[in-house]
């Protein structure tokens, strides 16, 4: 029974949502909206459980004075102070929003900017032409990169034969590259669909804590 009930619930919910949203008239009986509200409610409950879990895990780290325990103190202080402050003043409060906007976006932007350096080191590895395939990929990549900067147009003008470097770049991007991407996308869709069917049919049971 413990095994069957979650599988039956999953299948019934999936079938109702599938038929009432995708195929029949929108909002038929309002079931999709009802399911979504149930999910939102569960997510809100889980948020508190998450806070309790974080307190338990990091509280244990602080008690045992584990490595980097001071970061756990910092995390708990920030989590509770910011949550309580938000509950008191509301999420539209200027000060409440200032704390977020003054810290999070600049930190995110900093991390994002670092991707450029990682890209450089990854490119160095990727652009070693060990095989014919790798050489072809490298040639295409170099072509696309050069055609995206002004020097590309200087080398082979876009107003000349074949649209210049930019013309060939556009062909590479829109023909072979698109064809491969769409091939992968079709495979991914079918793979995703097969996985969903495995869940609906109760064949995929890992999420239910079953092997």
């Amino acid at each position: 029974m413990k095994r069957q009930v979650p599988i039956i619930l999953t299948t019934v919910t999936a079938v109702i949502v599938f038929f009432s949203i995708i195929l029949f008239k929108p909002d038929a009986a309002g079931w999709p909206g009802k399911f979504d509200r149930m999910r939102q409610f569960m997510a809100a409950v889980m948020m508190f459980m998450g806070m309790a879990n974080m307190t338990r895990v990091h509280g244990s780290v602080i008690r045992k004075k584990d490595r980097n325990w001071m970061f756990s103190v910092w995390l708990l202080v920030i989590m509770y102070v910011y949550a309580i402050f938000g509950l008191i003043v509301g999420n539209t409060n200027t000060t409440y929003r200032w704390f977020y906007n003054a810290f999070i976006p600049p930190i995110n932007a900093t991390m994002y900017a670092m991707v450029a350096f990682y890209l450089t080191s990854a490119s160095f590895k990727a652009f070693r032409a060990r095989t014919v395939d790798a050489a072809l990929m490298m040639a295409c990549a170099v072509w696309v990169m050069i055609s995206n900067v002004p020097v590309g147009d200087m080398l082979w003008s876009s107003e000349s034969w074949l649209g210049g470097m930019a013309g060939v770049r556009d062909w590479i991007v829109s023909v072979p590259n698109s064809a491969v991407s769409r091939g992968i996308a079709v495979g991914s869709f079918l793979g995703g669909f097969a996985t969903q069917l495995r869940i609906f049919l109760g064949l995929e049971r890992r999420h239910l804590g079953q092997g």
Partner: peptide, 20 residues
Amino acid sequence: PFFIASCDYTLIGEEEYAAG
């Protein structure tokens, strides 16, 4: 492309779902 450049093995597209 990023995973292929930096990882030892990359499963592409539907291969990800085939693992189970």
